[in-house]
Amino acid sequence: MTDAAPYRRRIDRITDEDFLDGLADLVPADIRTMRDDCREEEARLSYARRLLHGQLDIARAELQRREGTDADSLVSTLTTILTDEAAGGPRSVSNSEVYVPTGKQGRRRGDRVLEEMPLGRLPDLTDPELVAAVQRLKEEEQAISALRRKVMDNLDRLQQELIARYRDGAASINDVVRTVEG
Rank of each mutant, 00 (worst) to 15 (best):
T2H: 03
T2C: 11
T2I: 14
P6Y: 12
P6K: 12
Y7Q: 03
Y7I: 03
R8E: 06
I11T: 07
I11H: 04
R13L: 09
I14K: 00
T15V: 12
T15I: 11
D16Q: 05
E17Y: 07
D21G: 14
L23D: 06
L23E: 06
L26C: 14
P28I: 00
I31V: 14
T33I: 00
T33P: 00
M34T: 06
R35A: 00
D36V: 15
C38E: 01
E42N: 05
R44F: 11
S46G: 12
A48K: 01
R50S: 04
R50Y: 03
L51D: 05
H53T: 11
Q55H: 14
I58F: 01
R60L: 07
R60H: 15
R60K: 09
R60W: 15
R66S: 08
G68W: 13
T69Q: 09
T69D: 14
T69L: 11
D70L: 03
L74G: 04
L74K: 05
S76F: 07
L78H: 02
T79D: 14
T80H: 06
T83I: 14
T83F: 10
A86F: 00
G88R: 07
P90K: 08
R91V: 08
R91C: 06
R91K: 15
S92N: 13
V93F: 04
E97Y: 15
Y99G: 08
V100E: 10
V100G: 09
G106T: 14
R107G: 13
R107A: 15
G110M: 01
D111K: 06
R112A: 13
R112D: 12
V113Q: 00
V113P: 00
L114Q: 04
L119M: 14
R121N: 13
P123K: 07
P123Y: 07
P123G: 09
D124R: 13
T126K: 14
T126A: 13
D127G: 08
L130G: 04
V131D: 02
V131E: 04
Q135G: 11
L137G: 02
E139S: 05
E141S: 05
A143V: 09
I144S: 03
A146W: 07
M152T: 07
L158A: 00
Q159S: 10
Q160H: 04
A171T: 12
I173F: 09
N174L: 14
T179S: 15
T179I: 13
V180R: 06
G182D: 05
